[in-house]
């Protein structure tokens, strides 16, 4: 969780919510949270587990919509 907040601190485009699953069971069910932590990216992709910084960043970049040609992200 700390990592997500740190990413938000570093980049103004990012917002990071820490959600207590048991208090928001409907949301947890919607995102199929069976194990924690589970990081949902832009309401679609998800990463399970307390993964290393580089792993989460790669997952984030992969989940991003295609960038404009000038700022092409790595596939």
């Amino acid at each position: 969780m700390r990592l997500a907040h740190r990413l938000a601190l570093e980049n103004d485009n990012i917002r990071a919510d820490c959600i207590e699953s048991t208090e928001f069971p409907d949301l947890a069910a919607k995102y199929r949270v069976y194990a924690v932590p589970r990081t949902v990216i832009n309401e679609s992709a998800a990463v399970e587990g307390a993964v290393p910084e580089s792993f989460l960043l790669d997952a984030i970049l992969k989940a991003l919509p295609p960038a404009p040609p000038a700022a092409e992200a790595e596939a």
Binding site: M1, A4, R6, L7, A8, E10, N11, N13, I14, R15, A16, D17, C18, I19, E20, S21, T22, L27, A28, Y31, V33, V36, P37, R38, T39, V40, I41, N42, E43, E53, S54, L57, D58, I60, L61, L64, P65, A67, A71, A73, E74
Partner: peptide, 23 residues
């Protein structure tokens, strides 16, 4: 964050929403 991470992160130029579910 590490320098490498900051470089990667600079590629996020559109709104990005992270929701981390915890207990």
């Amino acid at each position: 964050l590490g320098e490498q991470s900051k470089e990667k992160l600079a590629k996020v130029t559109q709104p990005l929403h992270l929701e981390v579910f915890v207990t």
